[in-house]
Each structure stands twice: as C-alpha cells, then as structure tokens.
Nucleic acid binder design. Structure first.
Lengths: 350, 350
DNA sequence: ATGAAAGCGCTAACAA
DNA sequence: TTGTTAGCGCTTTCAT
C-alpha cells in the first residue's frame, strides 16, 4: 500500500497536520521540522492521495479537453500542447472526442464537469443557447471560437486571410474562390468576413462556394465547383479540404499551381508532404493549447481576477508549391473517359 | 452545490445507505423503494462524487493512455477508439504524450498510476528492465508491443507482411527493400522477421535498409538508399515513411509505381490522400484501442481471471496506386540540376 | 509552531 | 429489506 500522511507523521515524529502543512505551506512550519517531514516523505515515496485532497478542497487537479474529432490532425496538436503544459503545472488532462456530434458535446461537458476543475472546449459546434448553458455551469475556455464574453483562445483569422489575399494578388490573381467549411463553425464565418474585407481592399473578386465538410472528401467535392467558377486561385477552409481540391484537380487534369493556385489553412503535417506542398496559413496549434490551459488555470486559481478579452494568436502564411502566378481561367472542357482512366486508380482510393 | 447522497436520501425518505444500494446494487432493494430513490436522484440531478467513492473503493474510475507522439496520426485513432469505449463503460481517460522520450515514459507511468485504475501503453519504447518494473507496479495493457506475459494488443504483423510480399511477388517483383523503423520498436523487429520468412517462401530477395526515424523525413532520407539498392519495390515501416519515399522519388525523377512500387503500413488517413494513393497494410487502430480497454477493464474488475495471450488483430492489405507490375531496376543516373530544379519548389517545403 | 479533531461524500460492515 | 456507523486520506479550523 502507498504511504499516507499518517505514515509520514509517524516516521517524522510529528502530527499529521504538521505533515500536511510542511508539504503544502512550508513557511508555516519551523525549518528543522519541515526538513524532517520532507525527508520522511521522500523516503516513504509519499504522494498525497488526490481523491482525498479533492474531497476536502473541492478541486480535482484535473482538466478536460473536448474536441470534435481526434482523427482530424488539427486537434492532436492542440491536445499535445495543452496536455504537456497542464502536466508541468500539476494537472492531468482527460480527453474526449465528440465525433462531430453537438449533442454528444453537451453530454460530454456535463459528464466531464464533475471530474475536472475546468474544460478546454475546442472548435465547439454548440448552438448559442447550448453553449450559454454550458458556460454557466462549468469553468470553460473556448479554443477557435469566440462567444459573448467567454474566455477564448482564437487565431488571427483576419490577418491570415489578409496575408493569403495579398500573396495571391501579388501573383496576379484577380478572381479567388473561397471554399466554405461547416456552417456551424465560428472560424468559417470569421474567415469569410475577413476575406470579403481583404479582397475588397486588394481589388480581387471573391467567389464563395460551399458549405462543405471540413475534410479531404469535402475538398474533393468542392473542386469541381471551383473549376467551374473560373477562379484562378482558391482558399480552402482548412488544409484537408485544400488537399482534396489538389487531388481532384489532378484527376481532372488540371495542374497545380499552373492552372489553379490553392491555399489551405492550419499547416497540418500533411500539407508539407503533398506534392506540390501546400501553401497554407499556419496556425500555432500547440501554442493555442498552452494558452488555453493558462487561461483556464487562471480562471480556476484566481476566479476573481478579471480576464480581459485577448486578440487572436498570430498566424503565418507559408508559401509553398501550390501557389503560383495567375494563369488563364482553369475552365476546362468536360473530362472525357481517356482523361479519367489515366488516373482511375487514384480514384479507387477514396 | 451539487446534490449528495444525503439530499437524495432525504428527498426519498430513506437512509443514505439505501440510496447508495438502490443506485449501485438495485437487486438488493425493494422495487418500490428503488424507484423512489431513482426518481429523487434524477430530480436532484444527483451524480455520485467520484473522489469520495474512490476514497473508499480504492478505485478512481479513470484510465490513462500513454503514447509516443500525438502528432503521429497512428495514435489518435487508437486514442479515439479507447476513449469512446472506456466512456461507454463509465471510465474517463487521461492522455499523456511522451514526446518520444523513454525517460518521460517512465515518469508518466509513475505519475499517472496514482490517478488511474489502469494504463494503456502504446508502442512503448521502454527497455526491458524499465518495462518490467513498470508492469510490476501498475495495471498495464500494452498496445503494439509484446513483452513477456504482459497483456497486450498487437497486430498480425506476420500476416500483413505475407500479404504485402504475396502482392508484390504477384506483380513480378523479385527484389524488395525493407525500410526499417526505430531499432527500439518491437513491431519493427517483428516485421523484419516476418518479412524474412515471407520473402523466403515467395522466392523474393529481401534488402533491409535502415534504421530510420518513423517519419516522413525518415522516408525521404531512406529513399535514396532504396533507389541505390536496385530493388523494384519497397515496404516501409509505416505510411509516413512510405510517403516520404514517394515524395523523394518524385524529386529524383522516378515514377511511382512505374519505376518503384511502394507499400506502407498503418493506413493513416493521409495514405489515401496522396497521389498516387498508397498501397498499405491497414491496421485496425480504433479496434485496438477498444480491445486494449476491454483487456484493461477485465484486469481491473476481475484481477483473478486468467488472461491468456491473444494473437494479433487481423490486418488487411489495401492495394492502391503506389504498387504496380515490376519494372526494370530503378537504378538511375545521378540527378542533374535540370531534373532537380523542376521540382525545386517541392523541396522547399521540407 | 504544533496538535487535536471535525468532516468532505461515499461505501461496506454490521445491526435490526 | 433497511438503517446505523465507521472510516477511506486529506485539509483546515480551533486550541494550545
């Protein structure tokens, strides 16, 4: 059995309350006693029982992180950052995947809230009333979503869109397609708005297409509409969709960036591995995880401190192979079977 | 404040122990009383305090999952399966990422072991003595590693290698390269052994190359040795490496599968998105997560039950675009600058 | 500066 | 079948 306060107290020849104090509030104990206790504790490999502590303090020392889909590579990076940061600060992190289901999201928050001191809620797809109710009941930090005055870590979507548009405009693109992601996504709304502003300023025509699922297949589905739109460049809601566009363009016989320039958002690992590599707006994902934990711990440990709204984390356009100088419209004739069969094997993989 | 047993007891007009029983051992309580208690509990939205319960039962209702790197897409799938399965069974899951550091792995097991009933240890890189010590102290299920008599969930590496070799042999390949992953990886050792057997039977010559890091860049680094080996096909330790090989081959001006066939292992999402799509040995990752949780809960809830060793989970070769009929040796002359510059932009992304 | 004692919310003996 | 009671290991008054 693991050592308890009592064991340590006995070994150090003091009372259990002295042990507790020596370990948690060292300044309230005489130096000599403190050292004796510490030594005894170390020798017995004593670790306070968190359940017992939690029972009296009302705190668990645990955090939760809830996200739509672990297999979307955007999220593991956030989790990685959050988990490591929290652990360094003495907190453990529960993970929960909603499988993109807002109903499950509510349930998970409720279930987790009993077992944690606070929750990091990533890319929440919750409706305003649901989210409001969740925020009222639990200590929550949002990531990648802003909602009323709730503490949140976001990315500088506007800056990212400006960089992307400036890049494309400089390459001579005058007609740019936006491939929208989920309608319920806050960042999707945010990005289209920023895009409208940025294209307006740059004298670039914007064509919005979608919404589509924020996945590779969503991008594949979107590609044909992009091609039909006669845009010479496309900005996708995320890298996964952008990669889908690139893939579908290959099937359709379009060259990237020769016929169409493609920009993604996120900078998931995959985006650097495709060929051509994807030009993308890199989001500091691990940093966001750390920032969320910081915010959450602040909320937990200093509930009265005022948390003023923070601006989005800075993002960085990474220019890679999928963007190039503007070409003629990529409007191509309907593909014939010859064109298709050449890449037929590719298609089998979907 | 949240409702306690006492509140429910009062509301239902019974004692606290009746409440506890009615909820945890319904058969020991008169039906009518039970219903009354349940109704009161529901109305008060009562949830047992897990810390208090844990204090007396000695169980936390939590599991931990430890893995080398969350940003390696192989692991999130396992976590996803494990997390959902555990939650359905009333357990929450802590996540911990070792950042590929075996020393951190030991520390994390120790730290987590205080807060959980059991740990799922994925692709452990621990040395035999370290692993033995960990297993002695904690309730652990290994995933993707076999060690002495420890309970483990593995994949049928031998079957996978046989399928891959049979596929390549049928395509006429007679000289196949194996790109080894980390030396400390159990599955790496397992696979090379299976490969030796399978190639021997099939009359195929095997060339082992490596070890390399199990990453895209590892594959990029390996590719040149593959090309120099005059093999017409390569099997990589995982999909990430296989994708690296494909990418590097493009830079070197080799066509896939025309000049070289490439087979990966894992079936990460990315492998279906590359072009050509990657032929790969698909591992049932989420299923492995679920199986690990099953094993773990069995261990926790029936410590005396004998767990007999299980064979590896069945795997499935997915034939896609990256393999084709054997060509001549891909031995090519050293690339000249013209060849390189054509794909120079690709290179910038690494 | 230290100790004694109460009690967090729950489960599990033991009584009735 | 139900109620009473004794703790689980810890923190935290309240005395000393």
């Amino acid at each position: 059995m693991a050592a308890t306060v009592r064991d340590v107290a006995q070994a150090a020849g003091v009372s259990i309350s002295t042990v507790s104090r020596a370990l948690a509030m060292p300044h309230m104990v005489k130096a000599e006693t403190r050292d004796r206790v510490r030594q005894a504790a170390e020798q017995l490999a004593y670790t306070p029982n968190r359940a017992a502590r939690g029972l009296i303090t009302g705190r668990t020392g645990n955090l939760g992180i809830i996200l739509p889909d672990l297999t979307n590579p955007f999220f593991p990076s956030i989790v990685k950052g959050a988990q490591a940061w929290a652990r360094d600060r003495g907190y453990s992190v529960f993970i929960a995947d909603t499988d993109e289901d807002p109903a499950a999201e509510v349930g998970l928050v409720r279930a987790l809230s009993k077992e944690v001191d606070g929750i990091v809620l990533c890319s929440s797809r919750l409706s305003a009333p649901d989210l409001r109710s969740v925020l009222a009941q639990t200590c929550v930090v949002l990531v990648n979503r802003k909602f009323e005055s709730a503490p949140a870590v976001t990315f500088d979507n506007a800056g990212g869109m400006r960089q992307a548009v400036a890049h494309l405009a400089a390459l001579g693109h005058r007609r740019v397609a936006w491939l929208a992601g989920p309608r319920t996504s806050w960042s999707n709304r945010e990005r289209i708005r920023a895009l409208r502003a940025a294209t307006g300023t740059a004298g670039v025509e914007l064509v919005a297409i979608g919404n589509f699922p924020p996945s590779f297949d969503g991008g594949v589905a979107a590609a044909d509409q992009v091609i039909a739109s006669a845009a010479t460049a496309a900005i996708a809601y995320n890298d996964l969709m952008a990669l889908g566009v690139v893939s579908r363009c290959a099937v359709r016989g379009l060259r990237i960036p020769g016929d169409l320039s493609v920009v993604g958002i996120d900078d998931i690992a995959m985006s650097g591995m495709s060929s051509p590599a994807l030009t993308t707006v890199a989001l500091p994902k691990e940093q966001a995880g750390r920032a969320a934990v910081d915010l959450l711990l602040n909320l937990i440990e200093r509930p009265d401190a005022v948390t003023r709204p923070r601006r989005g984390l800075p993002v960085q356009l990474l220019v890679r192979g999928s963007t190039g100088v503007a070409a003629n419209s990529p409007h191509v004739p309907a593909p014939d079977l010859t064109t298709w069969s050449r890449e037929g094997e590719r298609h089998a993989s979907q």
